[in-house]
Design a protein around this nucleic acid. Structure first.
Lengths: 109, 109
DNA sequence: ATATTATACCTAGATATTCAAGGTATTGTC
DNA sequence: GACAATACCTTGAATATCTAGGTATAATAT
């Protein structure tokens, strides 16, 4: 992830779900989008992303379908399910809590 | 930690170092202080904290000394070294970067 | 034509971090 | 005298990331 490995733990799933909020995407695209939207802060590795996608799909948080690209290549698209949206809500509120905790400690005087 | 375990990874060291910025502390006290300053968001476990302290001391980021409490009990105080302050600076700037990345992704429209 | 790069998917093993659950010992409280 | 709070510590399981590999197709450069 280019950043301290540890920092990413726990937020990767939220970031992936967030990406899918704006539309279905395939894995490779998510990596590019995440980099773009974060202003190049996040360079998620494939070895990180694909297991996350598989786990989320197994848990019914995502569904997937294959679709042929204009180039002729097959791409595996992922779609947020209702359950996935709920999970995203929980992840976001956990992030809020965590974030506010860190900021409180950092700005303590 | 009470929060998603993963979220903590990577920030615990920064939080511990930050506590010591305001003065020497002993382990048990750090757990209470961290909880207090974070408005009860963080309840660090002893099994998390002590290994962190030992690793930081081994790396010369902290030094320690024993001191008797008014109660008569021995407490092991930790103190930030110059090297520790430098590490804290790096950790803080990494947190800034990470934080800005997450916020950028979350607020993307 | 052929080699290289970019696209697109995947997995196994090493590493790092937290937590649960235990242990030791002293002090204060009921 | 028993129990809770204080204060330190370690081991093993669980979780998450990354490295480094693998497979295959399409586009580009030589």
């Amino acid at each position: 992830m280019k950043l301290d490995k540890g920092l990413m733990a726990g937020s990767s799933t939220m970031l992936v779900l967030t990406l899918l909020e704006s539309g279905d995407m395939y894995g490779y695209q998510m990596i590019e989008e995440l980099s773009r939207r974060s202003n190049q802060v996040f360079q998620m590795q494939e070895g990180t992303l694909y297991p996350i996608l598989h786990t989320l799909e197994k848990g019914k948080y995502l569904s997937s379908y294959e679709q042929q690209a204009p180039t002729g290549r097959m791409r595996k698209y992922y779609k947020l399910t209702r359950k996935g949206r709920e999970l995203l809500g929980e992840k976001k509120s956990e992030w809020e809590k965590f974030h506010s905790g860190v900021e409180a400690v950092l700005s303590f005087s």
